[in-house]
Structures are given as structure tokens and as C-alpha cells.
Amino acid sequence: MSSRITGNVLSARSGGTHGFFPDFKEIETGFVAFGAGINQGKKIEKMGLEDIAPIVSELLQLNFETKNGVLYP
């Protein structure tokens, strides 16, 4: 997609793209955290993007509640 106001909305491009649904293994990525409040050696096999906000909220003591997401111990 482009931000042009004329021409085609979609056109062939080279390079990286965003916007895929995270429903297939080939686009999964890792998440690494360290520092105060993070358990050394803790491994979570799989977590979603929605799980990051509860972790950050807890670490920063923001009192931020989400409808989705898991706060891992």
C-alpha cells in the first residue's frame, strides 16, 4: 500500500512488508527481556504481542489493565 492520493492503491514493491496475520510459523519472532523484575533463565515457549503490555505495566507499576494479554509470573 502507499500514501499516494492518485494512482493504484496497491502496487508491486521490493523490500520488507508489514500487515500479515501472525497465524503461521514462518513469521514468528523472539522476545528477549532482561533487567530488574525479570526472572533470570525464565523461558516462555510462546507468547502473543498482547502479552507485552501487561508485562511492561507490571514492571513500571503503571496500574494498566488490559482486556487481552497474559501477565506471566
Rank of each mutant, 00 (worst) to 15 (best):
L60P: 08
I55H: 09
T66N: 06
M47E: 09
S57Y: 03
G16D: 10
Q40N: 05
F20R: 14
V56N: 06
Y72H: 09
S14E: 13
T66F: 03
A12S: 09
V32F: 12
R4K: 13
P54R: 01
S2T: 15
I38D: 03
T17H: 11
L71I: 04
G69R: 00
G41W: 04
T17F: 10
E50K: 12
S3D: 15
P73D: 11
F31T: 10
F64S: 11
N39E: 14
I38Q: 06
K25E: 15
G15M: 00
A36R: 15
Y72G: 03
S11A: 05
A53E: 02
G30W: 10
E65D: 12
K67W: 02
K43F: 11
M1A: 10
L59Y: 05
K46V: 05
E58V: 07
G19K: 05
V70P: 08
N8C: 10
F20G: 12
G48C: 14
F21G: 15
N68C: 08
N63S: 12
P54W: 00
F64K: 06
A36I: 09
V9F: 15
K46I: 04
F64N: 08
G41Q: 01
R13C: 05
G7H: 01
N39C: 07
G19V: 06
G15D: 07
F34Y: 13
S3E: 15
F21W: 14
T29I: 14
V56C: 09
I52H: 01
R4P: 00
Y72C: 00
A36S: 13
V56S: 01
G15C: 07
G7C: 03
G35D: 05
S14K: 10
I52W: 01
Q61Y: 04
F21A: 15
P54T: 00
L59G: 01
I44E: 06
V9G: 01
G30H: 11
H18N: 09
H18S: 14
I44Y: 07
I27Y: 03
I55K: 07
I5C: 04
A53Y: 03
G37H: 07
I27W: 02
L10M: 11
G16A: 12
K46L: 09
L71K: 04
Q40D: 11
P54N: 02
I27S: 08
I52N: 00
N68L: 06
I52T: 05
D51C: 08
F21M: 15
A36W: 12
N68M: 07
E45I: 00
K46A: 13
T6P: 00
Q61A: 11
F64Q: 08
Q61G: 11
E65V: 10
G7A: 04
T66R: 05
L10A: 09
R4N: 10
I27L: 13
A33N: 06
S11H: 06
K46G: 02
F34L: 08
I44N: 05
I52R: 00
F31P: 02
T6W: 00
Y72A: 02
G41P: 00
T6L: 03
L62D: 05
E45N: 15
F20T: 14
F24Y: 15
F31V: 15
K42D: 13
I52Y: 01
A53N: 03
L60V: 09
V70D: 11
G15Y: 02
K67S: 08
I38F: 05
N63Q: 09
G7T: 06
G19C: 06
